[in-house]
Design a protein around this nucleic acid. Structure first.
Lengths: 144, 144
DNA sequence: CACACACCCTGTAGCCACTACAGGGTCAAG
DNA sequence: CTTGACCCTGTAGTGGCTACAGGGTGTGTG
């Protein structure tokens, strides 16, 4: 299997595959006489695993850790649980932040009184509020 | 006001301020005889504006655009509305994705049957599912 | 006066997970 | 024989900072 075929099969960009090889996530395949990478079925499996993890927004360092568990099935897997838990915690924290953010943006959007000059723009006015020490519609400047 | 004082006042790292200056977001201040940056009140205002936008997760290029409106209050501000709207759209899309992600992670977490060897780990088993073409608890590999 | 320590300066490199070239080689079809 | 699709390596760019290295300045203490 050439790199382009692997890319299509795994729904991944060719450059991404080379990148995974470079950082040691995907083992370097053998080469055809012309120097092209020649992949076997195992590579597709591993790449699918990586992409599945990435779809779950698991960081590549964590994916590497999971792959080590896959490669050595005799190890204790409590860390797998912990890894998924911390991932879940991270996602939930980000969800909270984004929900707050959405409320703030909606409040901001409602400031627009349909004027046509920036000088009268309620949104800009609102964004400038904290620079005057005023209370703003967001009420929380430290969201992130 | 020295850079450290400005940093404290705006709850920003010193390096971030220098970075904003480097990319042209914050105007270069005058210098004291010793070469230290000497900031005036306007700089704090502008920095507060930037941080407020950043707290709303508005990209720096968009912040730059908003600052242009602030600097020239006679321009049409319909673009301000559009910018906030597209921001809101982006945040909502990300919210949807994260909610899906959370459900997937919860489903994954529930796969753990409290085994102690990676070989029997339900989570690893589940993460490997797509590599065998099986249906996985996520049911959607293209979440991002 | 000597020294420590906090702060300031510039410039560069690192982070993450890719993405996008530049500049070249290989191969099959028409 | 040329076109075009694919492959190769290596490097640089993205965003929004953050973290040095290697120096200078200013203030307080012994």
């Amino acid at each position: 299997m050439k790199i382009g075929e692997l890319a299509k099969a795994a729904h991944v960009e060719v450059e991404t595959i080379r990148y995974y090889e470079r950082i040691g996530l995907l083992p370097a395949p053998s080469r055809s006489p012309n120097g092209y990478r020649a992949y076997a079925g195992g590579h597709l499996e591993r790449l699918a695993f990586i992409r599945h993890c990435r779809a779950l927004d698991i960081a590549l360092v964590d994916v590497a850790q999971l792959l080590r568990f896959v490669d050595d099935p005799t190890t204790d897997c409590a860390e797998v649980d912990a890894l998924i838990d911390s991932q879940l915690t991270r996602v939930r924290a980000r969800l909270d932040t984004l929900q707050m953010l959405e409320r703030q943006l909606v409040a901001l959007r409602n400031q627009c009184g349909a004027p046509d000059r920036a000088a009268q723009c309620g949104i800009l006015h609102e964004l400038e509020a904290p620079t005057r020490g005023d209370v703003c519609v967001c009420h929380d400047e430290h969201a992130q």
